[in-house]
Amino acid sequence: MSRVLSPIAALGALTLSALAALGRLAIFTGQTFAHMIRPPFYIKEFGAALMNVGYFSLPVIGLTTLFTGGALALQIYAGGARFSAEAVVPQIVAIGIVRELGPVMVGLMIAARVTSSIAAEIATMKVTEQLDALVTLSTHPMKYLTVPRVLAGIIVVPMLVAVGNIIGIMGGWAVAVGTLDFNSATYLQNTADFLETSDIISSLAKGAVNGGIATLMGCYYGMNSGRGAMGVGRATKGSVEAAAVLILAANFVLTGIFFSS
């Protein structure tokens, strides 16, 4: 290959392998949803996944959204003061948290906390032949491992987003009332008046998509892990990277769909 053409060839190869990866991912996603609607269903595993993805994520989600809301209030106050628009703090905090930051922060925290643990667990199971053992015990690994986790992610992450939104708004409220001399009742009234149903629906929809992406990536990278400890490390790293990028990309697309018209 000539020296001039080789960068182009490299680019082509990269594009092809990216497309192939996307195709494998799409097939995996399709298989997951196909298994979701066909028995057997593993209720106990689903319950455990709900606890792990949802309940145990509450502390980290509460803390991250609390600080995000607080920082947002400070920034809007300082920025608004430049053109005497300090009063919009409650409205902008509400919109910023509910429409964007709530779902994104929750999605990224789930990627950090849940995607990584799912990927590491399933990859270790693969490396130690536990996935093979499942098959020999007439249990489909997709049904037993992937479906409960992905379903839990889709169902429970919107709830986490709802909780995160409330705590984020309360973070803004605490800062505004505590240090910026806002009236508490007026602040809450302004927030409630300003938010529309579509804001909340879009927020929860983003939550469901993010929950699906985060859990799917964990399962996909785990099941396709290479051999040995290095394989597990690679799978974990790859799963979190892919989940974070896809969550942000999906968020952008969904924002376009919901709010561009």
Binding site: E121, T128, Q130, D132, A133, L134
Partner: peptide, 30 residues
Amino acid sequence: LARFGMLFQGGALFDSLPVWQNVAFRLLRG
């Protein structure tokens, strides 16, 4: 597969389940 039983070289036990649930895995589901 329901006709087979297999002992893996490395054991391949499910480390998230207690021993008895490993042994009874097939008898607890399906």
